[in-house]
Simulated assay, not measured.
Amino acid sequence: MTPRLHLRCGDDLRCRLQRAGIAGEYLCFADPVCCGPAQDDGDLMAWLGMRARYVALHSGQDLAAVRLRLGREYTALGGLHRREAIWLWFEHDLWDQAALIRILSLLAEKRLLRGKLLLVPADGARCFPELSDGELAALQPAPLTDLQIEQAAEAWDAFAAPDPGALDALSRRELALPHLAAAMRRHLRDLPWTTDGLGEAERAVLRAVAAGAADEAAVFRAVGRADPAFHLTDLMVREVVGRLRLGPKRLVTPAAPLRPTPRGAAVLAGTERHRPAPRAHGGISVLPDPPWLWDPATAGTRRGA
């Protein structure tokens, strides 16, 4: 057996764990599955191609390099059974919870991993890098139960489905993974709303622009950490701003400084409704006349057009 492995959806703990005296090797799983398309029919090669195209397009990276990196990360998951233990460092927010259920969906049937997958506890408020070295060293991971792994795989199937009904129902249950339900509901809240056609992140960005955020950096400062369930990164802000700038009925001015267009101001005022550009939201298709909506009156999804 090879030593303990720390598995994390980013590189932000690679040096911190060593400094805190926490032994083990480190594996970064950096596929941002909470963003973009997540249609999954079980064909890993097709999945890697789809995700590489999305990540390369929205990060400005070379497609071949992204495909190679994602391939290495997913391939490494297949060798985890050779480890004595795998510590899973995933927090409460949507980015981490989506990555966690993606990983566990791929590992759910690997019996040699039973008892080796240990979840490091997150407090539901702070990110792990915000903890002191002493606080990190004091964390005691617990082995994942069969029920937790099964529910994670169930959640992934629902996340990747074209109909959000199963994910909506799952997010209303009391789940064995403590932060999963809230994260999945936050994902659903980025569907177009019945009230104005905006998803939650789009509305936050448009409000920040209306309040005077004149460029993407200012928007990021305004909204990046404002949402405890989904911390928007700078690249996410860029994507949302880009969406709101699209088309003849754009909500934000196409050139700097950023300002709401008259239509954007009307949507914020509730006198007009946004028609979103086509995009993939997990397994769900968002269209100008959305087939699925988030209804804040019922705090749930419903059919649209």
Rank of each mutant, 00 (worst) to 15 (best):
F29M: 15
F29W: 15
A30T: 15
A30N: 14
D31K: 01
P32E: 10
C35S: 13
C35I: 00
P37A: 12
Q39S: 14
Q39G: 12
D40R: 05
D41H: 13
D41M: 03
G42S: 09
D43T: 05
D43R: 10
L44G: 03
W47Y: 15
W47R: 13
L48P: 05
L48T: 12
G49P: 00
G49I: 01
M50K: 14
R51V: 06
A52H: 08
A52F: 08
A52E: 08
R53F: 00
Y54K: 05
Y54R: 07
V55P: 02
V55D: 10
A56T: 01
L57N: 11
G60K: 05
G60V: 01
G60Q: 02
Q61Y: 08
Q61E: 15
Q61C: 11
D62L: 03
L63F: 13
L63P: 00
L63W: 14
A65E: 14
A65Y: 00
A65F: 00
A65K: 11
V66P: 07
R67H: 15
R67Y: 08
L68T: 13
L68R: 15
R69N: 08
L70C: 06
G71Y: 03
G71N: 09
R72D: 13
E73A: 04
E73I: 05
E73M: 07
T75C: 06
T75L: 11
G78I: 05
G79L: 02
H81G: 14
R82A: 14
R82S: 13
R82H: 14
R83P: 01
A85C: 05
I86R: 02
W87Y: 13
L88D: 03
W89C: 08
F90Q: 11
F90C: 09
E91V: 06
H92I: 03
H92A: 04
H92S: 06
H92V: 04
D93T: 11
L94T: 13
L94E: 13
L94A: 12
Q97L: 07
Q97N: 08
A98I: 03
L100A: 07
I101E: 02
I101V: 15
R102T: 10
I103T: 06
S105T: 12
L106S: 12
L106D: 10
L106M: 13
L107R: 08
A108Y: 04
A108G: 01
A108I: 06
E109T: 14
K110P: 00
R111N: 08
R111I: 07
R111P: 00
G115M: 04
K116I: 01
K116V: 01
L119K: 05
V120Y: 02
V120S: 01
P121C: 10
P121T: 09
P121E: 02
A122K: 02
A122S: 15
A122C: 14
D123F: 09
D123G: 03
G124A: 03
A125N: 06
R126S: 15
R126Y: 10
R126C: 12
R126M: 09
C127W: 01
F128Q: 04
P129S: 09
E130N: 03
L131T: 09
L131S: 07
L131D: 10
L131A: 11
D133V: 02
G134R: 10
G134I: 00
E135Y: 04
E135M: 07
L136I: 09
L136G: 02
A137D: 01
A138W: 02
A138D: 12
A138T: 01
L139I: 05
Q140W: 00
P141Q: 03
P141C: 07
A142K: 13
P143S: 09
L144C: 07
L144R: 10
L144F: 03
T145F: 06
T145D: 03
